[in-house]
Design a protein around this nucleic acid. Structure first.
Length: 415
RNA sequence: GUGGAUGUAGCUCAGUUGGUUAGAGCGCUAGUUUGUGGCACUAGAGGCCGUGGGUUCGAGUCCCAUCUUCCACCCCA
């Protein structure tokens, strides 16, 4: 048997309704906040992620699905959404649109990771980006919208944590302090960390190696090195969040795995599941890094598989796929009548089923029961001769007489 | 990348100290004198016992490898 590749999942009919429900709710929410949908390619030039996400990050260094296509180009399946959206923004001259530009997406992402609870190789994210906004008010708006997702879906026990990781100005001072801290022990760090020392010492802080983690215990924290502007920005975000009644905690350990983040970063964490369900932040330097004009921006992404897992623990969805009417028939003549009648009722916008296997009347009833049909109409020779048939309400067993016109049948079953 | 568990019908699982044609429940299909579902009864279909090696007269059962799934570390959504 050929199985699906590791870390992928089939979304079966039983679950797809839940997906649709959640997606519609979130999309409606986003539209209310003035966001418009964008769809970008599943694959991009590898360089986009190397430069956008950062070639010292775990995502780029070891988790990308990268391959050479037949034209010799290095191609990568997108591991996240922001780089592609920003690329599209620049490439399509969206800077000429009213600023800020608010975009949302719902796309599959691909990362070669070890599979476990809430972590897949193909997963889906719904994300939102505000491009062209530098005020702290934009930070508050995007965090508010993220917060509303859990409100409209009735998902409890989600905690918001925020942090500020500064801008290039504060980073220069901070990285200097960090390098000074690391330097005496540099040769004791792992190879990867040593290679990160010059280029991006902050990455050394989230190395997985035990020895590196131990060496990092007393490392300086970015929050203590924020420049005046970043400090004020962060203070404003915090006080405005309190003002609009969104509770948060500050976690100075939030670094975020992607290099493009600046200033405000945040995560919504599920206490029950023990993982981050939504993450985001500001990325003031990304558009320039990708050769656009200096444009400040921010956004977030929510993991759909994780969101749905938690959602289903707190909410039950009823099966809306059951038909309203099943038309059972006996004999060739009745089969013709039933087929035409089914077609007419479907054209009238109703969910109607009929036998397509030539099964016995008993088997037809069994099937109608199994698929949860609310009514069953039986057609045989007598019914055709008299032009009168009975509609049975399955739950009560009650029978109602009707003629064989679709209008009359529709009237009865729609009550 | 490291560590732990797992893998027998569509699903949930039995399978005794290695011993004939591998079982159950649920589900599926059909029937119980042929025009009515849910209950009951009967029958049927459906398994290279994850895959590949090895030990043995003989392996679902023991050994090795590999893959899958699940979980933890870490990181993330």
């Amino acid at each position: 048997m050929i199985q699906r590749p590791k870390g992928t999942k089939d979304i079966l009919p039983e679950e797809s309704y839940g997906w649709q429900y959640i997606e519609k709710k979130i999309e409606k929410l986003f539209e209310n906040y003035g966001f418009k949908e964008i769809r970008t390619p599943v694959f991009e030039h590898t360089e986009l992620f190397q430069r956008g996400v950062g070639d010292t990050t775990d995502v780029v260094q070891k988790e990308m699905y990268t391959f050479e296509d037949k034209g010799g180009r290095s191609i990568t399946l997108r591991p996240e959404g922001t780089a592609g959206v920003v690329r599209a923004y620049i490439e399509n001259g969206m800077a000429s649109k009213p600023s800020p530009t608010k975009l949302w997406y719902n796309m599959g992402m691909y990362r070669y990771e070890n599979v476990q609870k809430g972590r897949l190789r193909e997963f889906h994210q719904i994300g939102a980006e505000i491009i062209g906004a530098d005020s702290y008010l934009a930070d508050v708006e995007i965090i508010s919208m993220a917060n509303e997702i859990f409100k409209v879906l009735d998902i409890p026990n989600i905690e918001l944590t925020i942090n500020s990781i500064g801008c290039p100005v504060c980073r220069e001072n901070y990285q200097k302090a960090l390098r000074e801290f690391i330097k005496p022990n540099l040769k004791n760090y792992c190879e990867i960390c040593q290679s990160r020392y010059e280029k991006n010492p902050m990455r050394i802080l989230d190395c997985k190696e035990k020895k590196c983690k131990e060496l990092n215990i007393n490392a300086p924290r970015i929050i203590d090195y924020l420049c005046e502007e970043c400090k004020i920005h962060f203070e404003n975000v915090k006080s405005m969040l309190s003002e609009v009644g969104i509770p948060y905690t500050i976690d100075t350990n939030i670094v975020r795995g992607l290099d493009y983040y600046t200033k405000t970063v945040f995560e919504f964490i599920s206490k029950e599941e023990g993982y981050t369900i939504l993450g985001g932040g500001r990325y003031d330097g990304l558009i320039q890094e990708l050769e656009g004009q200096e444009t400040k921006a921010l956004g977030f992404a929510v993991g759909l598989e994780r969101l749905i897992e938690i959602f289903l623990k707190h909410n039950k969805l009823e099966d809306k796929t059951a038909p309203l009417l099943y038309i059972a028939n006996i004999g060739d003549e009745a089969s013709k009548v039933a087929t035409k009648l089914t077609q007419n009722l479907r054209r009238m916008g109703l969910h109607v089923e009929k036998d397509i296997q030539g099964r016995s009347i008993k088997a037809q009833f069994k099937y109608a029961d199994k698929i949860g049909s609310k009514y069953v109409l039986t057609i045989g020779e007598t019914e055709i001769k008299n032009q009168i048939a009975k509609i049975k309400e399955m739950q009560t067993g009650k029978e109602i007489e009707t003629d064989l016109t679709p209008e009359k049948i529709k009237e009865i079953i729609q009550k």
